[in-house]
Design a binder for these strands. Structure first.
Lengths: 341, 341
DNA sequence: CTGAAAGCGCTAACAC
DNA sequence: GTGTTAGCGCTTTCAG
């Protein structure tokens, strides 16, 4: 490993000078700069990141913690989000630390990373209505940005898709096709987006003079198996729904399977919709009507918000701080109509 | 941030003593240990990881670099592998650094992380027959472990599923059902597993006195779209196959879709198989015959191999090095027979 | 323009 | 048992 000292020895300059020469600007003679930079390259010098970081007390790293049941995260959704985050981070020269935590020690991991100075901030995803992560990080004033808002804090950077708006679109579409008995299969309602979407459905139905039959709301989990099981329960009802909204695409796939097995023709006998528009949504049979979320791009956006918020905490270059650009972004998702409705 | 110095000041001991007291063992008086540890906890001391790492010249971090086209990695497959890796790493107190690289600068990122001392080793996945990453890391003697072997190096730790064996099973199964015209839809044959699997098919067919018709081998990409397109080509052949082996599950889904659209009944008119047994394989319609790979567990195994290899490089505790346990693991995958054949 | 000195927080060799 | 000294590789005053 080549160090500043090594270079200094070689060109007969102090470590200090070498350091400055490499960082370019400062007042160093052009000759020295030239000499040092060439020697450095030639010797294959690469700065020791750890040392730099220790010095400037910054980890240049952001963290994201995934629950160990990766299943929990609707698979390809999380993958894609992660990719968006990682890409943006590497664009800005920031490392991405991914940790996997069992539910029990999730908070412990956050604390460890925070106090150990291992990361400069966190990305949160799938927020809860009352989210312990948000509560904790806010209380210690540690930077974070989230995909999704929460109910009891409103002053942190986040990206949110407008779930109510999306559901209004979806309901309009279904009602327009003559459906009045619309069912919802939701992940736990303690999850923010789940609650928001359900509220959206109710609200829009009310506006149209319809009511959401409570027996048509099934609260479950995030996966396909659940979509399948809940659908069977719904279709066994004395007065079953004619349309089912799966609160994510994976759930909707389960709905489709269950309905098909009962000999129903999707799109004719039963309308099915999802949410997210993961790649497979358009490839499933029948292709799924759903709400598009630009997941990858959302990952990048959240990351940008986070990095911005971190910078504001250490205002190096006092550029007009009024450029506090909007740090809460609300996206208008697009309805994608396919054959399943 | 509480430092050793702070604690030292408080209990009237030197930084050194505090350090030793916290690490437990060394020769420190029980009283001091007690006192220091309590004070530390009470003050909320957490060691500064960066400083520790700079000192012992170890990043306590392993890296994995994913291609930016996360699509490239058959989605849920990569997610699950990552989860396995992350879990094992955090079990051992090691951080996981995930980077996303565009193909062009992939190697540059490896080099930067290596020389910058940012990671102690890498996990590679989806190896190529002649893999630049393996070539580079071997040449600089940097620790790594891979999921998958390569052709020109044989002395690094890896986990490999026995692709030939798996394909033999699959071929036996198909031939047992009376199929003789078996097609293969493969990812690029520069990818190690793709080449191995194809070889496996050929070999087994030969052993059974059959031949793999070259026109039934379609080399494409990794995704569902490709499975779909290639299937249409195959089925348009004058003498089409009666069975199609998708070299991963996602490809197989594409095959199923294409065949269904042509009114073929999967399992009767056309047999379809995949490879991997991702969660959706059992949930697709019809459920997919495939080869199970314990992806999550493989992630953990590779990680263990890597960590072991890193330790061997810095032999702290010279435990019988003869315990150089097997560091090349060959897995026997299981054939999972479902309705698609 | 350049160098000496200090320090980031921690560990380790070497005294006492 | 405990403290002193040094040093990991780097950046940043502060003097020349």
């Amino acid at each position: 490993m080549v160090t500043l000292k090594d270079i200094g020895l070689r060109v007969n300059r102090s470590v200090t000078t070498v350091s400055r020469a490499l960082s370019g600007c400062s007042d160093v003679s052009p000759d020295t700069i030239q000499l040092v930079q060439e020697t450095a390259k030639q010797m294959g010098y690469v700065p020791n990141t750890l040392a730099q970081r220790l010095q400037k007390k910054s980890a240049d790293t952001i963290g994201i913690i995934a629950p160990v049941s990766s299943m929990g995260y609707a698979e390809s959704f999380f993958c894609e989000l992660l990719a968006g985050i990682g890409e943006e981070a590497s664009l800005q020269g920031i490392d991405l630390l991914v940790a996997y935590a069992k539910e029990e020690n999730e908070m412990a991991i956050y604390k460890k990373l925070v106090t150990g100075g291992r990361v400069d901030g966190f990305i949160l995803s799938r927020t809860l209505r009352d989210d312990p992560r948000v509560n904790y990080l806010s209380s210690v004033q540690f930077p974070f940005a989230a995909f999704g808002m929460v109910e009891n804090h409103h002053d942190f950077p986040y990206v949110e898709e407008d779930g109510e708006y999306a559901m209004a679109q979806l309901v309009d579409h279904l009602v327009g096709r003559g459906h009045t008995r619309i069912a919802c299969i939701c992940p736990p309602l303690s999850v923010m987006f789940s609650a928001v979407r359900l509220r959206g459905v109710k609200k829009r139905l009310a506006e149209l003079g319809l009511e959401l039959d409570p027996s048509l709301v099934r609260e479950g989990s995030f996966d396909q198996k659940d979509g399948y099981d809940q659908t069977n329960i719904l279709l066994d009802l004395p007065n079953p729904p004619t349309a089912i909204i799966g609160f994510n695409d994976i759930i909707a796939f389960g709905v489709i399977n269950a309905a098909k097995e009962r000999g129903l023709k999707i799109g004719r006998d039963l309308a099915v919709t999802g949410f997210d528009d993961i790649p497979m949504a358009s490839l499933y049979r029948p292709p799924l009507t759903t709400v598009n979320q630009p997941i990858h791009e959302i990952g990048s956006m959240v990351t940008r918000l986070l990095l911005q918020s971190i910078q504001e905490k250490h205002p190096k270059n006092h550029h007009t701080n009024s450029s506090l650009e909007k740090s809460q972004i609300l996206l208008r998702p697009n309805l994608i109509i396919r054959a399943s409705t």
